[in-house]
């Protein structure tokens, strides 16, 4: 009865085994960052891929999750795990608030994309002047490795933690996919007016999607804060994470469970490859990365998942 979850669980189990086989911190660090981006992308994908609401400002959720976990610990002495949970909730609440404002105003398409971008910028500016977030100086979480402080001494533990987060997010998305909510979400994406005519409460569906989306991406931000322990406004709310989040989902395969994970792995590998081929000359590696990105779009317009499906046509029937 739960067999729709099985493929996700199998892949997660395989990924969980990696540290047992691979003894390289380089590889683990690579995977850890890739999974963090996949997590941010999974949040984006729920809203953008399934719901068709393209956001250019998911940094607003990423940064809020990151700052929440840092500020609650540093300023209020709250336990790291509790702060982490609060960060996720705050991301979801912020999603609801932004959704309530924008969806009720009927913003779609590029208008929605641009308004999210503006929200992220507003958050960035506020974080750069508000004493609570450390203003311009940023905020540093004291270094205290341990389970209770959610700072992992070994890279494997940090890796497993982000893998668990990603696993939960992917299972949520997979579960939504096969439920009525998933169908309603896709209906909203395909044709909002038709969905409304069929009795779908469009606003409610969108609000739920943006809340979940915000919570998932906030968890990626919270993980970032716990890993690097230092935040400033540009790191937490900068446009980079908004771009990364949508990039992983679109390159991997928009509106699919696997898209963000595959996209993050491929993009990270490409970036590394560019660095490798570009050598020590600053910039050359990223030029190659950009060129390969364009080629990927040219030859895999529906992402890596789409490419895989077109190579194995019989999978189409299962959608």
């Amino acid at each position: 009865m739960r067999d729709h979850l099985a493929p996700v669980l199998i892949v997660l189990a395989l990924l969980a085994g990696v540290p047992l086989v691979v003894d390289s911190n380089v590889v683990l660090n690579f995977l850890k960052v890739a999974l963090m981006l996949a997590l941010a992308g999974t949040g984006w994908n729920l809203l953008g891929g399934y719901g068709g609401q393209f956001s250019f400002g998911h940094a607003v959720f990423f940064g809020t999750g990151a700052y929440a976990v840092a500020v609650l610990q540093v300023r209020f002495g709250i336990n790291a795990w509790a702060a982490f949970g609060a960060g996720i909730v705050l991301g979801a609440v912020l999603g609801l608030a932004i959704g309530w404002l924008t969806f009720r105003a009927g913003l779609r398409g590029s208008y929605f994309a641009l308004v999210t971008l503006a929200f992220a910028e507003v958050a960035r500016i506020i974080a750069s002047v508000w004493p609570l977030t450390g203003a311009g100086a940023g905020i540093l979480i004291p270094l205290r490795e341990g389970f209770l402080t959610l700072q992992f001494g070994s890279r494997a533990e940090g890796y497993w933690f982000v893998l668990a987060l990603l696993g939960i997010a992917m299972l949520i998305v997979r579960a939504i996919e096969v439920r009525r909510f998933g169908a309603q979400l896709v209906a909203v994406r395909e044709n909002e007016d038709a969905a409304r005519a069929l009795g779908v409460d469009v606003l409610r569906v969108k609000l739920l999607a943006i809340a979940l989306s915000g919570g998932i991406t906030a968890s990626a931000g919270a993980f970032y804060a716990q890993t690097f322990l230092y935040l400033d406004a540009g790191l937490a709310y900068g446009p980079w994470i908004s771009v990364e989040a949508l990039l992983t989902a679109i390159v991997g395969g928009i509106g699919t469970v696997w898209g963000p994970l595959l996209g993050a792995l491929v993009l990270q590998a490409l970036s590394e490859l560019g660095k490798h081929l570009g050598g020590d000359a600053p910039g050359l590696g990223l030029v190659l990365f950009g060129a390969v990105l364009i080629l990927v779009v040219r030859f895999a317009p529906n992402g890596i998942v789409g490419l895989a499906r077109s190579l194995r046509p019989r999978r189409l029937a299962r959608g």
Partner: peptide, 11 residues
């Protein structure tokens, strides 16, 4: 187009 223009920007 979004991705292609992004790729161009990086290049």
């Amino acid at each position: 187009i979004l991705l292609v223009t992004l790729g161009l920007a990086v290049i």
